[in-house]
Write a protein that binds this DNA or RNA. Sequence first.
DNA 1: CGTCGTTTTGACACGTTTCAAGTATAGTGG
DNA 2: CCACTATACTTGAAACGTGTCAAAACGACG
Lengths: 252, 252
Amino acid sequence: MEPAANVLDLNQLRRSCSSCALYELCLPAGIGVDDLDRLDATVKDKRALDRGDMLYREGDPFEALYVVRSGALKTFVQNEAGDVQILGFHLPGEILGFDALATNLHVSQAEALERSSICELPYAKLQQVTSEVPALHRQLMRVISREVVEEHRHLVMMGRQQAQEQLASFLRSLADRYQRLHRDGSALNLPMSRYDIANYLGLVVETVSRLFSRMEEMGVLQVNRKSVRILRPELLAALCRSDAAPRRKDAG
Amino acid sequence: MEPAANVLDLNQLRRSCSSCALYELCLPAGIGVDDLDRLDATVKDKRALDRGDMLYREGDPFEALYVVRSGALKTFVQNEAGDVQILGFHLPGEILGFDALATNLHVSQAEALERSSICELPYAKLQQVTSEVPALHRQLMRVISREVVEEHRHLVMMGRQQAQEQLASFLRSLADRYQRLHRDGSALNLPMSRYDIANYLGLVVETVSRLFSRMEEMGVLQVNRKSVRILRPELLAALCRSDAAPRRKDAG
DNA sequence: CGTCGTTTTGACACGTTTCAAGTATAGTGG
DNA sequence: CCACTATACTTGAAACGTGTCAAAACGACG
């Protein structure tokens, strides 16, 4: 394991997985030191992305899985009409690219929200290693499953929650993930725009903006542009539940 | 529902995959006759489900993939508060159970909407066969990918479309799938309740009911309870697009 | 320092939900 | 088989939340 306080300390980020400060978060989590070396060898040179750069586009051939090393990305789909729907935001330690596992073609797109660096796991090599290291295979499956569960959460959010509940859920989810990164989960620095948040939740920008203001008035948050401080976590948690204004959208 | 030239003719449904009238729709599609026999041997006794019966529940161990042989099912997730969100409806020839692939535990639930019969593909055996028959493995992947794409469509529908556009899209999707079954795509017999449709789309029953009425007034549909006839397919297609009332929910 | 894109705020319109009632339908037991 | 009840579906009127349009404030950046 890595020294102490800040796992994100860039000085500690070196080339190999075995010394990757995020290693307990991504694929190698729970893998023995010896096996780590094997995985290490499959990681290709990291890629650096600027804000707006695409990691992959729809239709791109499946070449690798990607782990966010630093920065943040969004993934989205685009229909014929050009409408964009953001599927998710991806923070350091999180893995992208599963969408191409089935067809060998990406069916969604990934774009950097800010300057980011990426670990590339060429799938051909990865496949070879996973077949030899069962523990890694299990870990890969575990990560894919998180993806599926996350998609379900997204659907429930959009289908059953009101705007305010949605935003509260969204912020809590972000806070949780920040904490897993050993960062302060109560002082978020949002890498995405209000437009992105709105799109992700199926709302318009104005609504999101108003909700931030309202939650600030309520004393739940302290908002300043991209910087959001959670002042009353327990209240934020309460806002996620719809018992205050129960909708009866349940199936018969 | 048993006319002669009907692929669903139960008389033609026999025990084995090679004579399964739906075989071009499910897993064996595109598999050679010889390999079909091998898959055939892995199919366990079919299960019969009554309306309301559960095929699997959240937390159930992953034992098999299931192919709908006749009837229809719905899959859904349920959050802590008990809120249900329907993920999809499954018609004959369609496969369920992928949600457990990663954790070996089901994370969603499947319930029969009407009397249904199910092909069970025990995963242990299936895995063995797929490892020996690469074509089957590819086909399995292709099917999983459809699942992912379908989830994305669901998200776009909920996030970007208005109620009427959603219902139109939903009906078109159903019609398409009916046609693939060689059934009349313009005379739908909805296996799910209005509550189910509403839940799936993130609406309330009343809204769905009103929309059916409105679309009937417009001359697009002829609705009688579960039976829906599509009178003007081109109009229905037009209703899916939001250019009539463009919302600007796009990401910046 | 001016321009551009992002964010915020306000007033208003509209779609969807809510609440309430009524009608059809299917399932059940006599 | 019919009557009866529970459930599913429909319809109306009103309330509410979110979208729309417009404009201003703010910050980033050349």
